[in-house]
Amino acid sequence: MGYDAAQIEVLEGCEAVRRRPGMWVGSTGERGLHQLVFEVVGRAVSEVVAAGARSVEVTLTSDGGVRVADDGPGVPFEAPATGDTGGPGLEAELTSLQTGAGPSGRHLVVVGHFIVGLLAVNALSSRLTAEVRREGVRRVQEYARGVALAPPLAAGAANGSGTTIAFWPDAEIFETTRCSFAVLAERFRQVAFLNPGLEIALTDERPAGGARAVRFRFPEGVRDYVAALDAEAGANLHPNVIGFEREDPRMAGTMEVALQWSGTRQERVRGFTNSRPTPEGGSHVDGFRDGVVAAITEYARKRGLLTAVDPHPLADLIGEGLTAIVSVKLDRPEFLGATRGLLANSEVRACVGEAVQDRLEAWFEGHPEQAMELVDRIVRGVHQN
């Protein structure tokens, strides 16, 4: 049997998403279900962070829906007039594959495993309602399985500004439509740590015994993250966390780093790029380790703890008891592998390494007793090997 262009079936928009949902959200199981939530929350968080607003409220409703509300400027349904800045309007985001919508680059907060756009959420929901509060007016539009039931309609005066998207995952598509409160809460907590000042609330209206809710906000960002990880491990050698933020034009982005050595033997070093976990590490984590090794080696040599002829395996020893968060936000992140778990931007390594070395050396000078205790312990490990 011959195969030619006549056998090619071209699918577009909602039809393409509904026919092959796993290609868009990863699976039709719980992972894909959560990707829908993360997609909507990621859009809201990015808008809020970029606009200097504060909060995102996520509610798991009693009828199986998910409602995500933010206090950002409100995304207009229509695209801006020709010549104005900004991407396509909210209606276009919900109905077509658009590029350039919303914050991008270092201002894009990636909450899910990847980014597929609001079209996928709309297409894979039995119902979706979008509400925009902007310039004193509240406007609403409703969809059924990705198809608009009517144009955006004015629905009265608006108190404040923001965008709310409520959706009901389609039971014809997903094996389960019940989101895990614990999975969502853990990821939202992580995103709040990585974006200082952001407030994310999660409310679950489904339990028969009454609603449950959590709220996350961490003014100190990654410093709070390190302190929390050590507190959870039940070990804290020094009460102060070493942390800093720095922008470096050479890597077209910013870095936020926090670290602390505790009394445990376990190493907990976690890397993130644009708020997305990078479990395989990459250039930002490699640069962090370079900087720590360089600072400790320099300190040890200046104080005679290491000589020029001593072996130099410090990289294998600095991790004992080390807890660290290395978060970079880049305009043009590059990754190796389909899962995006390994950051590849080569210039990031040198930038992070230099910054970590500078900050750690300054901390050593300001905390001589703690510095000597820490470096001496590491160097003793060198001599024992």
Results as ranks from 00 to 15, higher is better:
140 V>S: 03
324 A>W: 05
320 E>G: 11
250 R>Q: 13
114 F>L: 00
359 R>S: 12
65 G>V: 04
367 H>D: 13
249 P>L: 12
353 G>F: 00
341 G>A: 14
22 G>D: 06
311 P>V: 07
353 G>S: 01
58 V>A: 03
18 R>E: 03
157 A>C: 03
96 S>P: 13
253 G>M: 08
245 E>L: 00
140 V>T: 12
217 R>W: 12
24 W>D: 02
44 A>Y: 08
198 L>A: 05
37 V>E: 01
173 I>C: 04
153 L>N: 05
132 V>C: 00
302 K>A: 15
374 L>C: 11
124 L>A: 03
275 S>A: 10
109 V>K: 01
303 R>Y: 14
3 Y>N: 07
307 T>N: 13
126 S>P: 14
142 E>M: 09
300 A>T: 06
334 E>H: 10
318 I>W: 04
149 L>S: 09
355 A>W: 11
55 S>W: 06
229 L>I: 08
226 V>G: 10
148 A>L: 05
364 F>N: 08
270 R>E: 12
356 V>H: 06
254 T>D: 09
1 M>I: 15
34 H>A: 13
308 A>P: 11
84 D>E: 15
198 L>W: 02
117 G>A: 03
316 D>T: 11
152 P>I: 04
4 D>T: 02
66 V>H: 00
299 Y>W: 09
147 V>L: 14
116 V>L: 09
276 R>T: 07
24 W>A: 01
326 V>N: 07
56 V>F: 07
35 Q>M: 09
240 N>R: 15
39 E>F: 09
156 G>R: 12
286 D>W: 11
96 S>C: 14
30 E>G: 03
239 P>F: 07
126 S>N: 15
355 A>G: 13
78 E>W: 01
237 L>E: 10
57 E>T: 02
148 A>M: 08
139 R>Q: 08
131 E>I: 07
159 N>K: 15
26 G>V: 02
261 W>A: 08
32 G>H: 05
136 G>F: 06
127 R>M: 13
42 G>E: 00
339 T>Y: 14
262 S>F: 04
153 L>E: 13
80 P>L: 05
228 A>D: 12
268 R>H: 09
256 E>L: 14
44 A>E: 01
63 D>C: 10
109 V>N: 00
183 V>L: 14
237 L>G: 11
70 D>C: 11
357 Q>F: 05
154 A>D: 15
195 N>W: 03
275 S>Q: 09
54 R>G: 10
318 I>N: 01
214 V>T: 14
130 A>Y: 06
348 V>D: 08
35 Q>G: 04
182 A>D: 15
277 P>W: 02
374 L>G: 08
64 G>S: 08
231 A>Q: 11
309 V>W: 10
153 L>I: 09
170 D>T: 00
317 L>C: 07
93 E>L: 05
303 R>Q: 15
301 R>G: 05
227 A>V: 05
228 A>I: 01
128 L>Y: 10
351 C>S: 11
203 T>H: 01
217 R>S: 13
21 P>S: 07
311 P>H: 08
41 V>W: 02
80 P>K: 03
351 C>E: 04
7 Q>D: 13
326 V>I: 11
227 A>C: 07
163 T>I: 09
182 A>M: 11
291 G>C: 04
29 G>M: 02
26 G>S: 06
133 R>F: 02
260 Q>K: 15
140 V>E: 10
235 A>E: 03
185 A>M: 11
36 L>R: 04
60 L>N: 04
355 A>Y: 12
131 E>P: 00
296 I>D: 05
287 G>H: 03
212 R>T: 15
